[in-house]
Amino acid sequence: METKYISKEGLGRWFDAIVASEKRIYAPVKSRGQVDFKQVKSLSEVADEYIQTTQSIKAAVFPKAEILFSYEKVNGKVNLTDFDPNSVPETVLWKVHPCDAAGFRPLSAIFNWDSADKLHNAHLSRTTIVSYGCAIADESCFCTSVNGGPGNLNGSDLQLTMLPDGGAIAEIITARGETLASLCPDAFVADRGDDKSAHLVDLPARFSLEEVQSKLNKAFDSSVWKQQSERCLGCGACAFVCPTCACFDIQEDVHGSKGRRIRCWDACGFSLFTLHTSGHNPREHQSQRWRQRILHKFSYMPERLNVVGCTGCGRCSRACPVDMNILEHITSIAEQ
């Protein structure tokens, strides 16, 4: 890893160089009263002064709906057309928060458990992540409680920490980050020795992850799930804004003799998610589904995939129509 300084002017030149390299750039954009990742062509389109994008950046490597393969039926035979990794353009994800960048590891752990997921990997291998250290946070943020932090480098290829002069500390973390920086090498000059932590938000940890995990190991039969989930409406808002939720459905899009098999987002909170053909539903009640959501992230994933399924971004708490606040709920479990 290498630390450099990039001036405000250098940042602009570098961004223009990325645009000129014909890579797709996704960055947070303000529109319709929300901030979300959209394709941009200039630095001026990029939003500033916001806590968090409504949706995470996961769609970049796990699209909401993606064609797994397509087929055509001809005279009783079937011709298959496989997903083509080369159809995925080189993409730069710009101004990703460290909590979003940290979400790539759990996502990849799920998609590549035992067998490789060709589609996810095709996106991932063509993606460069430029994160920004966080100077602000709100009461839903808790990255520091789940192994993260406002200047955490996990998952980032290059991280910028903005300085009062409009320039930034540039930490070039991976080879991919280096390649991106090399599009405008003279924009990156010697590190001035700025203190990174002075330009990041101070966010004390809200709970001890170890404590939560040890409590959860014994909590399956606890009454806490019913208590916490009573007001839960059973929608998928929390799962869909989450940077690490990866549950999916496989569906068929048919047009006459042609068709496509589609993978799309799904959520363990939906009542029909686990419904058997026989009519038996192992997770019939909302309390069971809420328990699954929490245990999967904080207990099953750490045990099976060696990674926590939560990055503390707080999106689920902000998106929930009925204030199912994950920080409040996890803290109360930790304190039990």
Partner: peptide, 9 residues
């Protein structure tokens, strides 16, 4: 759905 430990069902 997936059969290979990814879809979560």
């Amino acid at each position: 759905k997936c059969g290979v430990g990814k879809c979560g069902r």
